[in-house]
Computed example of a mutant assay.
Amino acid sequence: MARYTGPKSKIARRFREPIFGPDKALERKNYPPGMHGASKRRGKQSEYSTQLMEKQKVKYTYGVLEKQFENLFHRASSKEGITGENLLKFLEARLDNAVYRLGIAPTRSGARQLVGHKHITVNGEVVNIASYALKAGDVIAVREKSKTMESITTSVAGRRINKHSWLEWDPSNLTGKFLNYPNRDEIPENIKENLIVELYSK
């Protein structure tokens, strides 16, 4: 499964947001990367550049490659409702994202690894496709033989109760349920989805 494997701190500094999770490098150097550092004078970004940056930020945040993202956007635009909000709802319904949101993994990349290594089931069946699209009522669970994995037990121990209203969590069985697509105001990421819609509308 193809995925981004490059330097994460550099990307986080480019967007000035911890899009891959807490990052000490971003805290120390809260300015874009480059040989001139914080002293470099940067010109005003064009409208296109701003829109492109927003799209790139969302792709890195959710770990989606270009073709996947484009397909999701077209799916969102063909569905009834607001295109930008539909796009975020579809991203939130990815299996790897739900595993991360439930607290089974501390990061989305960690969640993708758990899914890819067949530690996660959906409705009792092993699913190893990170982009698997969840539907309302789907039950996500840790495989029985994987429940004692240190990475999973440590992550679950640190999760907060009822963190996301569109997901239900059963700590005793390490299972969760995808209740429904979240509303836009429930999604915590700092994303201006209207800029992405504008970009694809050109």
Rank of each mutant, 00 (worst) to 15 (best):
M1N: 13
R3S: 02
Y4R: 01
T5E: 03
G6A: 11
K8P: 02
S9E: 07
S9Q: 08
K10R: 15
R13S: 01
R14E: 09
F15R: 06
E17V: 07
P18L: 05
G21N: 09
K24E: 12
L26V: 05
K29Y: 14
N30E: 04
K40A: 15
K40D: 03
R42C: 12
G43M: 07
K44D: 03
S46T: 15
S46D: 07
S46V: 02
E47R: 12
Y48K: 13
Y48Q: 10
S49N: 08
T50N: 08
M53D: 14
K55L: 04
Y60I: 07
L65P: 04
E70Y: 14
N71D: 13
F73W: 12
R75A: 13
S78P: 01
S78V: 09
K79I: 03
K79C: 11
G81Y: 00
I82S: 04
I82M: 08
E85T: 14
L87T: 08
L88K: 07
K89L: 00
F90R: 03
E92M: 09
E92L: 09
A93T: 06
A98Y: 00
Y100E: 02
R101L: 04
R101E: 05
L102Q: 10
L102D: 03
P106A: 07
P106K: 14
P106V: 15
A111V: 09
A111H: 03
R112I: 05
Q113H: 12
G116D: 06
H117L: 09
H117A: 13
H117T: 12
K118W: 01
N123H: 05
G124M: 08
E125S: 12
V126P: 10
N128F: 02
A130R: 10
S131D: 12
L134F: 06
L134M: 15
A136P: 15
A141Q: 08
A141P: 04
K145V: 13
S146M: 11
M149I: 14
E150W: 11
S155V: 10
G158R: 15
R159E: 10
R159P: 07
I161R: 09
I161E: 11
K163A: 15
S165D: 13
S165C: 05
D170W: 10
K177F: 01
F178Q: 09
L179P: 00
N180M: 07
P182Y: 06
E186M: 06
E186L: 04
E189D: 14
N190H: 06
I191K: 04
K192F: 01
L195S: 04
I196W: 04
S201T: 06
